[in-house]
Simulated scan of single mutants.
Amino acid sequence: MALETKWVQYGENQEYTGYLAKMDHVKDNLPAVIVIQEIWGVDAHIQDITERFAQAGYLAFAPDLYAKNGNRIEELRVERVEEVKAFLDSLPHTVWNNPEERQQALGELAEEKQNRVTKTFERMFGGMHSSNYIGQLLATSSYLREECGVSKGQGVASIGFCMGGALSALLACRDPQLKGAVIFYGNAPSEEELNHINCPVYGFYGEHDKRISDNVPAFAEQMEQNGKKFDYQIYKETGHAFFNDTRASYNVKAARDAYQKVLTFFNQMLVPEN
């Protein structure tokens, strides 16, 4: 059976845009999975993940957090984001967060390209905060539960990657009706925020992604102390972005295991027992 995919407008004033995928010809109401982007946006990889969950029997929906009223600002246009991604991929990963070495590499680019990459990099990595996106994510879960014909009245869960992983956790803090949240290598919410979590949370991390994975045990302890359900997996000899099969960081064994666990989790959270 083929997939039906499309971009849709939603929100109180139709100001938001999202990529929707479901199995073609399926008429039953489907539980919904919100797929929350990496910092690169709803690119081909995120669209592919969205389609995978559609093939698994869900209404899958990836909100484009960089678009308003159907358009992106100049610095976040798809080609500009891809240019930054290509620049960073040309460097050792250790350089990404080293301003001096990164600036040295930027200085080797042609002036016009250097200006474009710098502006988009600063916009993506320096000027974005989770609070900028939580309104759209809450509107997304509301749309899927209350307005989208295919998923109306059904449960909604979330999954996010890197930036989106942190946002998936934050959505669990802010949406009391969310059925479950999955974090892939994203930062944990504050302890004050996690007090409001009402659904189970599942996290997946890489051992070598120290900036994030070293904080997971403390996050787990906070969740336990606050009576929240949190399971997690830290994969040995694995780094950041191990689920992204378009990047050099992809780890097929970790990705395969995590995907199977996520499908089981969503089935438990979203599909009522007969």
Rank of each mutant, 00 (worst) to 15 (best):
L3K: 06
E4C: 07
E4I: 14
Y10K: 02
Y10V: 01
G11A: 15
Q14Y: 13
E15D: 09
E15K: 06
Y16S: 03
G18F: 01
L20K: 01
K22F: 05
I34W: 00
W40P: 07
W40R: 09
D43V: 11
Q47I: 00
T50V: 08
Y58Q: 15
Y58P: 06
A60G: 05
A60W: 02
A60K: 01
D64Y: 01
D64V: 01
Y66G: 07
N69P: 03
R72H: 11
E74R: 10
E75G: 06
E79T: 12
R80E: 14
E82H: 13
A86P: 00
A86Q: 05
L88W: 07
S90P: 12
V95G: 03
P99Y: 03
E101T: 15
Q103K: 10
E108Q: 15
A110T: 14
E112C: 06
K113E: 14
Q114E: 10
N115I: 07
N115H: 11
R116F: 06
E122G: 13
M124Q: 04
F125Q: 09
G126Q: 10
G126L: 10
G127S: 15
M128Y: 11
S130R: 14
Q136T: 10
Q136V: 13
L137Q: 05
L138C: 07
A139E: 01
R145A: 09
R145Y: 08
E146L: 13
E147I: 11
V150K: 12
K152G: 09
G153Q: 10
F161A: 01
F161D: 00
C162R: 02
M163F: 12
G164V: 09
A166P: 03
L167I: 01
L167K: 00
A169R: 01
A169F: 06
L171T: 02
A172I: 09
Q177R: 13
V182F: 05
F184H: 12
E191W: 04
E192V: 13
N195E: 12
P200Y: 10
Y205D: 05
E207H: 08
D209S: 07
R211L: 15
I212R: 02
D214Y: 02
F219C: 02
F219L: 09
F219V: 02
A220C: 15
M223T: 04
G227I: 11
Y232A: 02
Y232M: 02
E237W: 07
T238D: 06
G239K: 00
A241H: 00
N244V: 07
D245H: 03
D245C: 01
R247V: 05
A254E: 07
Q260H: 08
T264G: 13
E273D: 08
E273K: 12
N274E: 14
N274D: 15
